[in-house]
C-alpha cells in the first residue's frame, strides 16, 4: 500500500522545494565556506609561485579544485540518518525517490556554482586567462560529476563527513594498484581523462559523454541501493 505521498501536487512538485531546501542547506554548511577558502587559498598560492618565476602549470588548479570538492561534496545522508530527518521527511512528506532526487539536483547545482567560482578565481589570479580557466573548471566539474554517485554510495553506508575523500582515496589506490600490477592506466581511460589536452575543448568530448550518460545511470543504481538504507514507508 502506498504511503508517505509527496507534496500536494505530487512527486514532481515536491522535488523543487526539497531541492531548494537542500541547496540552501549545502550553501549554509560551514564546510562550503571552507571549500571556497581552500580553493581560493590554494589557487592564490600557486600563482604566487608563478609570479616568482617558477611555473606551477595547471596542476595546481586540480589540487585546489579537489581540496575544495573534498570539503563540500556531500549529500547529508549520514547527517539525516543521525538526526532521523530522513525518517521525518520520508514517512511524513515525500517518497524516498523524491528525497534522493532532490539531493542529486542540489548537488548538481552546487557543483556548477563551485565550478563558476573556480573559473572566476583562476581567471583573476592568472591575470585574465578566462578561456583556460573555463576549460579547467569544466573538465574538473565533469570529472566531479562522474564521482558524485560514488559519493552518494559512500554516504549511504558510512557515517563520514568527508565521503568525497573516501571516494578519491579509493580511486587513486585502485589506479595505482592496477598500474603496478598490470602496467595499464585503464581506470583513467574509463573516465575519458587520458584524452584531455588543456585548452582544447574538443578533447573534453569523451569525458563529457561519460559524465552526461554514465553518471545518471550510476545514480539509478546507487539510488536503488540507497533506498535500501532509508526508512520504510
Amino acid at each position: 500500500m502506498s504511503r508517505g505521498y509527496a507534496a500536494r501536487g505530487g512527486r514532481g512538485e515536491a522535488i523543487g522545494p526539497l531541492a531548494l531546501f537542500e541547496l540552501r542547506r549545502g550553501a549554509q554548511r560551514p564546510s562550503s565556506l571552507l571549500a571556497l577558502l581552500l580553493l581560493a587559498g590554494t589557487l592564490a598560492l600557486s600563482h604566487v609561485d608563478e609570479w616568482r618565476g617558477r611555473s606551477a602549470g595547471e596542476g595546481f588548479f586540480g589540487h585546489a579544485y579537489l581540496l575544495g570538492a573534498i570539503a563540500f561534496m556531500r549529500y547529508g545522508l549520514a547527517a539525516d540518518r543521525r538526526l532521523r530527518f530522513d525518517e521525518y521527511l520520508i514517512v511524513n512528506h515525500v517518497r524516498p525517490a523524491t528525497y534522493l532526487s532532490a539531493k542529486v539536483c542540489a548537488m548538481a547545482i552546487l557543483l556548477v556554482a563551485y565550478g563558476a567560482v573556480a573559473v572566476v578565481l583562476e581567471a583573476a589570479f592568472s591575470g585574465g586567462g578566462f578561456a583556460d580557466a573555463a576549460w579547467l573548471a569544466l573538465a574538473f566539474t565533469l570529472a566531479a560529476w562522474m564521482f558524485a554517485p560514488l559519493v552518494m554510495l559512500v554516504e549511504t553506508w558510512a557515517d563520514t563527513s568527508l565521503p568525497a575523500a573516501v571516494v578519491l582515496l579509493a580511486y587513486f589506490v585502485t589506479v595505482i594498484t592496477i598500474y603496478m600490477v598490470g602496467g595499464t592506466l585503464a581506470p583513467l581511460d574509463v573516465l575519458g581523462i587520458t584524452h584531455l589536452e588543456p585548452g582544447y575543448w574538443s578533447s573534453l568530448g569523451p569525458l563529457t559523454l561519460r559524465s552526461l550518460i554514465g553518471a545518471p545511470l550510476a545514480f539509478l543504481l546507487v539510488g536503488a541501493a540507497a533506498r535500501l538504507s532509508l526508512p520504510r514507508c
Binding site: 504511503r3 542547506r25 549554509q28 560551514p30 547527517a79 532521523r84 530527518f85 525518517e87 514507508c233
Partner: peptide, 24 residues
C-alpha cells in the same frame, strides 16, 4: 489523487527527530 488533495496516509513523530543545525 490523494496527493493532489493534500492527503497523506500516515503521520509519525518521534522526539529524537531533529532538524539539520546548519539550516536557518
Amino acid at each position: 489523487e490523494a496527493s493532489r488533495r493534500g492527503a497523506c496516509r500516515v503521520g509519525y513523530y518521534h522526539p529524537s527527530m531533529s532538524l539539520p543545525g546548519e539550516v536557518v
